[in-house]
């Protein structure tokens, strides 16, 4: 067992577990995208960034791949984290504006505009489908091909592979296919149809549930 501090709360975690898992056990919500229980951690999307304080320095690390350490000091909601996370969600949105999961996340963070040039690729390369196919179905017909801006998820030679059982798991687990944003038009990359741009009331007592972290405050439950 190791002892660490998350958001000012001292806690114990078993060795080998990750900061994300520990925070989740404590009831702290860290937004995640490429992380999925049951799949290996990949650290691709960087949405789950947390601030790790070491002495008078702090760094940003992806909590899903960060193993717990003795005496670690973590902040999941600091200003530095929120700022970095916003940029990351904006970047993800700019390459994939039609994901409801992402749009909701942007709404929760109070993002009203995507500052980057929008180039819809319909995929954020989170690799969930790749890992699902390999780890859960034991087939591994999906993978990444190419590099840099031309990187994409594909099957070998773009052919329908013999090994594929048509389980549909890749589509089911895809955060874009699973919940496509149905908004007709996007303004500045934000759909604004569901939660965004609507003033949210603040709870009478803030329990720091981190459910909504928009500029207007928490949502009332």
């Amino acid at each position: 067992m190791v002892e660490l501090t998350i958001d000012g709360i001292k806690t114990h975690a078993s060795e080998g577990s990750t900061v994300l898992e520990t925070a989740m056990e404590m009831g702290i919500t860290i937004p995640t995208f490429c992380y999925y229980p049951g799949l290996s951690c990949y650290g691709e999307c960087r949405v789950c960034l947390v601030e790790v304080v070491k002495g008078d320095r702090s760094s940003l690390e992806a909590s899903c791949t960060l193993p717990v350490e003795q005496g670690q000091v973590i902040f999941t909601n600091s200003e530095k984290v929120m700022r970095a996370r916003k940029v990351i969600v904006e970047l993800l949105l700019s390459s994939c504006p039609n994901s409801k999961t992402l749009q909701d996340m942007a709404a929760n963070m109070g993002i009203n505009k995507v500052r980057f040039k929008i180039k819809d690729r319909g995929c954020i390369l989170c690799g969930r489908c790749v890992r699902y196919c390999k780890e859960q179905m034991g087939v591994g017909v999906l993978g990444f091909v190419g590099r840099g801006t031309s990187r994409r998820v594909a099957t070998a030679f773009d052919l329908a592979p013999e090994e594929c059982r048509n389980c549909g798991g890749c589509e089911w687990i895809c955060p874009v296919c699973e919940r496509a944003c149905t908004a007709g038009s996007l303004i500045d990359g934000i759909c604004g149809a569901c939660q965004n741009l609507v003033p949210v009331e603040t709870c009478p007592v803030c329990t720091r549930c981190s459910e909504s972290v928009g500029p207007q405050g928490h949502r009332v439950y």
């Binding site: 390999k134 017909v141 993978g143 091909v145 590099r147 099957t155 070998a156």
Partner: peptide
């Protein structure tokens, strides 16, 4: 590529991924 994948026991896409990466 198919031959390499089957002889190494790797999924074909993994070999393709390497071949298209470099």
């Amino acid at each position: 590529l198919r031959a390499v994948a089957s002889q190494l026991g790797l999924p074909l896409i993994q070999v393709c991924g390497v071949a298209t990466f470099f």
